[in-house]
Simulated scan of single mutants.
Amino acid sequence: MLYACPCGCRTVGRLRFRPDVSGNPSWEWDGNRDAPTLNPSVNHVGHWHGWLRNGEWVSC
C-alpha cells in the first residue's frame, strides 16, 4: 500500500501486507478497501507515528 504521510509533508511511504516473506516489516489489513484498519501502528520515521483505523489516521 502506498500512502501520503499523515503529517502533511506528502512524502510517500509503502506498507507491505502480511504475509510478507521478504522479512521486511509488514501489517495486518482488515480487507476493507473503503475504510481500512492496519495493525500494528505505522511509524513514518521522523515525521509521524500512529494508526490507520477505519480509514482515519490517528496519531499516537
Rank of each mutant, 00 (worst) to 15 (best):
H47Q: 02
R33M: 08
H49M: 04
C9I: 07
G13Y: 02
E28D: 15
P6V: 04
V58K: 07
G23W: 01
L52E: 01
A35F: 09
N32P: 08
E56K: 15
P25F: 04
N24G: 15
N39P: 00
G13N: 04
G46E: 10
W51Y: 11
L15Y: 02
D30G: 14
S59I: 02
R33N: 08
P36I: 00
L38T: 01
H44C: 15
C60R: 09
S59G: 13
N43G: 10
C9W: 08
P19D: 14
T37Y: 06
E28W: 13
S59R: 04
N39D: 07
V58W: 04
R18P: 03
A4T: 09
D30Y: 11
A35L: 06
V12W: 02
T11F: 00
R18G: 15
W48F: 01
P40W: 07
F17G: 14
P6F: 03
W51R: 07
R10L: 08
P25H: 10
N43C: 13
E56P: 00
P40D: 12
L15H: 04
H44V: 01
H44Y: 08
R14G: 12
G13L: 03
A4C: 09
C9V: 07
G46L: 10
C5P: 02
P36A: 07
E56W: 00
H49S: 06
F17E: 14
P19K: 04
P36L: 03
C9Y: 11
L15P: 02
R18N: 14
H47C: 11
G23K: 00
G23S: 09
G23N: 06
V42K: 01
S22Q: 09
A4E: 05
F17N: 05
S22W: 01
L2S: 09
G13A: 06
P19T: 06
G8I: 02
V45C: 11
D30L: 00
W27E: 02
M1Q: 02
P36K: 04
P19E: 13
R14P: 00
P19L: 09
W29T: 01
V42P: 04
W57N: 04
P25C: 03
V42I: 15
N32W: 09
V21S: 15
M1T: 00
L52H: 03
E28F: 12
S26R: 04
C5M: 02
C7P: 08
C60E: 15
N24W: 12
G50A: 12
R16C: 06
G23L: 00
L2T: 07
A4Q: 11
Y3T: 02
S59F: 05
W57K: 08
H49G: 10
P36S: 09
N39R: 09
N24C: 14
Y3V: 00
R18M: 12
R18D: 14
H49V: 10
R14A: 14
T37F: 13
